[in-house]
Design a protein around this nucleic acid. Sequence first.
RNA 1: UCCCCAGUAGCUCAGUCGGCAGAGCAGGUGGCUGUUAACCACCGUGUCCGCGGUUCGAGUCCGUGCUGGGGAGCCA
Length: 461
Amino acid sequence: MLRTKIKQLLRAEAPCSQVLIKGWVKTRRDSKGFSFIELNDGSCLPNIQVIVDQTLDNYPQIAKITTGSALSIQGRLIESKGQEQKWEIQATAVDIIQLAPENYPLQKKRHSDEFLRTIAHLRPRTNKYGAAFRIRAALSWAVHHFFQERGFLYVHTPILTGSDCEGAGELFQVTTLDLASLCASSTQGVDYTKDFFGKMANLTVSGQLSAEMLALALGDVYTFGPTFRAENSNTSRHAAEFWMVEPEMAFCDLTDNMALAESFLKYLVEYALAHCAEDLALFSRFVDKQLPFTLEKIRSAEFIKISYQEAIEILIGSGMAFEFPVAFGNDLQSEHERYLTEQYFQKPVIIYNYPQNSKPFYMRLNDDGQTVAAMDMLVPGIGEIIGGSQREERLEILTARMDQAGLPREKYEWYLDSRRYGSVPHSGFGLGFERLIMLITGISNIRDVIPFPRTPKNIEF
RNA sequence: UCCCCAGUAGCUCAGUCGGCAGAGCAGGUGGCUGUUAACCACCGUGUCCGCGGUUCGAGUCCGUGCUGGGGAGCCA
């Protein structure tokens, strides 16, 4: 007999005379002459209640079943006599796949997120983390849906990269050289010709430059993959390994780029509301009571779009005593971004046209000669969730900006070729996938939205 | 990397002015019961994060290290 997922049984419309379920015990309670087992198989948040009568010949063993044990149960799906569930299983056979010892770390109570991080290999079995990872899976699928519906091609850009200055942060170096002997013997520089690629190699910090090449051939493309930053960032919003979604569109300016970013975020929120209601309800109840309000606002409100100049004027006019001074040319600090999105507008805000000196070389210089066609989307509680720009398509200006930034032109000849042969206006952005999951679940720490987080000094599991 | 806070039973936490180490949950035993993180009674549980110092006496005060958390910077 094939096993049926618990999710399917809980949605049943009629009783069923014989079913097989397999899963892990959430809790067991005894009653006179029988035992209640709550079984969960990860397919959905609720458990299914199983009634085990003492007439089963292995009932003495069944009565000893502990939380965390793995079971295979055959029985009848019947209407429950209890108040809190429609369906339950009347067991005809209970096979103990493995009995969990009593030192099973997950108890029938609330654990702190800090403790659960120390048992990241077991926390997917908790209600909260199970729900978070189901939502993560659903939203991964939604990302593909959104772009596929719009004719974007899903492209794969390299994880290993030879360009040592993509400019988006500190890099993890990749090597097959024996570091132990290098450290012991070498007093001069490393001879990279002996390394695997014959030159220095790193893990990617962004697929953008490669994605641009594909967009300039295929039109509209997107990447969705892991990204690595070796920044020593110790915050609730940064991970050394995270997943990023990066669309890149040919014949697309900053206005269209911002419009796509807004539709994208709205689509993802709507998708979660439509497909993950049960799991989301857990987060609204136990994690963030404001969550339904936040999500509804993103779904229905038009996002604010203001220039950097306007943002500065609002901040100066706010009368707020900021720790960092507000002035044109200064970077917007966290406190400024939070004020704009959490207090002043209380919804997502896209800020565009930043001063060129604070942004990377590939962003398109505006006609004012001062600003670039960059945009950041800020959301309440998280801050920056999307960063993007129209790319500089004019060869002379691009090379001038590279020189300005001190980037060696010869290493970017392949990139510059795209500006030599049929260069066109194009744009794109990057969405931090973990930050999206944080926004949609209300989970406030990035370490809790990815199964096995990698942060400075932490690569356990 | 910088600033602030914390570290006590398997877990969550209390511990007053420096004076015998505590509770709830989990676990064990018994009872009751179509129960809902069941309930009732009883039972066990400690490197008080490590090292050093002050003191008759330190979980408590001081120094230092480690670990965790919050905030900042960097960014998605």
